[in-house]
Simulated assay, not measured.
Amino acid sequence: MDSNALDAVERVRHGGTIDPHVVDFSTNTNPERPSGITPVYDAALAASRRYPPDDHGEFRAAAAEYVGCEPTQVIPTAGVVAGMRLAFSVVLDPGDSAIVPEPTAGEYAREIRLQGATPVGVAHDEVLEVDPESHDLVVVCNPNNPTGETVETDDLRSFAARCRDAGTTLFVDETFLGFTRRPSVAGEPGIVVVRSLTKMFGLPGLRAGYLVASGKTYDRLDVARVSWAVSTPAVDVGTYCLGREEFVERTRKRVEAERLRMADRLAERWTVYPSDAPFLLFDVGTDDPDDVLDMAREQRFALRDARKFTRLDNHLRVAVRRPRENERLLEALTL
């Protein structure tokens, strides 16, 4: 981390509400989680009187099986942002240049700046058109947040080959890819993939995730990672969740069906963008975004004010939750 950057970088504001009386459509976590977690957590808590194993072998194996890579390519992390910081600290030096899609999550630019590097914003659907030789890192969020669009796998692989030839690291955030049926690029040469258990398994407070890399990049990440950075409960519950194939498939089907239904209803009034993720971005047109947010809040629903994202000025984002909750929200929005 570049100490000179600390005085100029601010924290990123996120959505979410802690009000128990409000249904939170502003965050994209699964409102459901796999059954059977509690006894796994309780057993892990009892085992937490000891330091966790530093290799996390079972977790690595479960993560590798989930994305289709080798266990020796997995680096456990305390969530996506921790993985992001580790990766950026290894591949970036002060003065480096990094491509960041826009609009997208603000953490990428923040973590790049903390390394003393410069984030260069590019329209999210034009990132694969940049010349990687002019930059040291390229970030791809797939599906992108907040737009929800995915990159074609073949196009991403072709771009990865260009990055390898240029000696540029390609960092792919697959946080939401598990909601789709597209294959991961985890384990492919020259790519660092980051994954999370937060979104699919509805466990944002657990702080569990992982990086996938190969070759020298993996070796450097493994040396740089903090010892015992991931807790025993996070590792054990994460290992359990990664094996719940039926839960993942059931979640995909629910999200696919509800996303389509919600998009159709929202499109009766506003412009809705195509999405492969568990959320929808929409432009409220001639309506005032603040009025829509207030209208939802009065009915005890929280939406995400997407105007916080770069390049968006009239947009809101809504998560895809359970059918009954989704219907109540649509009715509250008079759709």
Rank of each mutant, 00 (worst) to 15 (best):
V230G: 13
R182Q: 13
E188H: 04
M200Y: 02
V194I: 05
A213L: 09
V255H: 04
T198M: 04
E258S: 14
M262K: 02
L203F: 03
A257L: 04
G243F: 05
R195K: 09
R225P: 00
M200T: 01
W270E: 01
E245P: 00
T232K: 15
D222I: 06
V223Q: 11
C241G: 03
D222H: 11
G205W: 06
R220W: 02
D219R: 15
D236R: 11
W228I: 06
S184E: 01
G215C: 12
M200A: 02
L206H: 06
R269Q: 10
G205R: 10
A234G: 07
S196C: 07
E246V: 15
L197H: 06
T251K: 03
V235Q: 01
E188W: 03
L242E: 10
V272R: 07
R182F: 03
G187V: 11
D219Q: 14
S231Q: 04
L211R: 12
R195F: 00
G190L: 07
R207P: 02
T180F: 02
Y218E: 05
T180C: 07
L206D: 01
V212A: 12
R220Q: 13
V185M: 01
G238I: 10
F201Q: 10
G190M: 09
D264G: 10
E246Q: 15
S196W: 07
G215H: 12
V230A: 14
L260E: 15
L203Y: 04
K199T: 13
E245A: 15
P233E: 14
R252T: 06
E246T: 15
P233M: 12
V194L: 04
G238C: 07
R182M: 08
S184H: 14
S184N: 08
M200P: 00
R182H: 06
Y218K: 12
P183K: 09
L197Y: 08
R220D: 14
M200S: 01
R250Y: 01
R225Y: 03
R254V: 09
R269N: 09
R225A: 10
T271V: 05
T239N: 09
P189I: 08
G243E: 05
M200Q: 12
A213G: 06
D236V: 11
V185Q: 03
D222V: 07
T239E: 11
E256M: 05
A208Q: 13
P183R: 06
D264F: 02
S184F: 14
Y240W: 09
V193D: 02
P204F: 13
A186F: 01
R225I: 06
V230W: 04
R265T: 13
P233H: 11
G238P: 05
E256L: 06
G205F: 09
S196D: 01
A234Q: 09
V185F: 02
L203V: 10
M262Q: 14
D236A: 12
R269H: 08
G205H: 12
T180Q: 03
G187A: 10
A234R: 06
R259Q: 12
G190H: 07
P274L: 03
P274Q: 01
D219C: 02
A267T: 07
T271C: 00
T271K: 12
P204A: 09
V237C: 05
S214K: 04
